[in-house]
């Protein structure tokens, strides 16, 4: 109970900071008024509505989605280094965006996000399979290396296309520099719904995923069908990470940072862990975004770079603590 309140307060402060800090600082009073009594002639209200709220929603969708996806995938693989970014969602999305632009010549952001989603999903499933996920052997080293290999392949193909066809370069540049700053032109509504479906599926399956992580023989004894649960969990992960990439662009390592914190707060019940992951993921992304906007103001550090700079040391820290003899 105490933890729940604590988490909510942390998230609320993050939301207030995101809405409040910027070129034009906004007071709490303005924020409330902008939502309760919206006045289209008041520039402050317009800024909150058209710029900062989309940014906030994108961060909530991406942060909560990536956090929950990280917890699901770690619990499914029993691998503390599993992360949607390591599963290749970002390079898969980049590849799909560039190929889509090359084939159709379209470059509007709605179309790009629509391409990003299947790209991210396919990459995630491929890495999971290549890393031995189907046989329940997706250990830290395997998954990380399979992800590294697929990332390298996809990014090589992306640079080949981008350098060969100049018109795709601009699109790609927009895409890779994409951050929460462009949230207002991305398809927020559709992706929020998709992410919510993924989250609901994950919460629904949580007890069975837990049973599965005890080992597939035991899970079968408890009456679950391992292959079906794995498929469902992977589907949930894909829905959540795909929509996260579509609204926020490439964001690395959030799925790695969140699960250990969630476990500490919520204990070892997966459903509680998942809810905590959503709140923690959204909070971390909002704070990282705010910090990225403040450190080098008036210019911005992309939030994806912020999370990578925090997340990579975390990856090393966890790698060091892996117990010898633990499943590799």
């Amino acid at each position: 109970m105490k933890q729940t309140i604590g988490l909510c307060i942390i998230l609320l402060i993050a939301i207030a900071l995101t809405l409040g800090i910027g070129v034009r600082d906004v007071t709490l009073m303005d924020m409330l008024q902008a939502f309760i009594a919206f006045d289209p002639t008041n520039p402050v209200h317009v800024v909150i509505h058209s710029v900062r709220t989309p940014r906030l929603v994108a961060a909530l969708v991406a942060g909560a989605g990536l956090g929950m996806a990280g917890t699901v995938i770690q619990s499914l693989t029993r691998n503390p280094l599993a992360d949607p970014g390591i599963l290749g969602v970002n390079s898969g999305a980049a590849f799909a965006v560039v190929v889509g632009a090359l084939l159709t010549g379209r470059s509007d952001s709605g179309w790009m996000s629509a391409m990003a989603f299947p790209g991210a999903a396919l990459a995630a499933i491929s890495v999971f399979m290549l890393g031995g996920g189907a046989r329940g052997q997706a250990g830290p080293v395997r998954l990380a290396l399979a992800g590294t290999a697929l990332n390298a392949l996809l990014l090589s193909l992306v640079s080949a296309i981008v350098l060969a066809r100049n018109e795709t370069l601009e699109i790609f540049r927009f895409w890779v520099t994409g951050s929460l700053a462009q949230a207002d032109v991305r398809p927020l509504a559709g992706m929020s719904v998709t992410a919510a479906i993924g989250a609901a599926l994950a919460l629904l399956l949580a007890p069975r995923i837990e049973a599965l992580s005890l080992g597939s023989a035991l899970a079968r004894g408890l009456g679950t069908k391992p292959a079906r649960i794995q498929f469902g969990a992977l589907l949930a992960v894909t829905l959540m990470t795909g929509s996260a990439v579509a609204v926020a662009g490439p964001i690395a390592f959030l799925g790695l940072l969140v699960p250990p914190l969630a476990r500490r707060v919520a204990g070892h019940a997966l459903r509680r862990e998942l809810l905590a992951s959503a709140v923690i993921g959204a909070s971390i992304l909002l704070y990282a975004d705010t910090a990225g906007r403040l450190i080098l103001a008036p210019s911005e550090i992309r939030v994806g770079i912020m999370t990578a700079l925090i997340g990579a040391p975390m990856f090393i820290f966890i790698a060091r603590r892996l117990r010898p003899g633990a499943s590799t």
Binding site: A144, I316, G325
Partner: peptide, 21 residues
């Protein structure tokens, strides 16, 4: 035990960090 695997994982992590930087 498993020093080699730790080395490779930590190396991957350093790679992630330097590429981000």
């Amino acid at each position: 035990a498993q020093a080699g695997l730790t080395l490779i994982l930590v190396g991957l992590g350093i790679g992630f960090f330097t590429s981000a930087a």
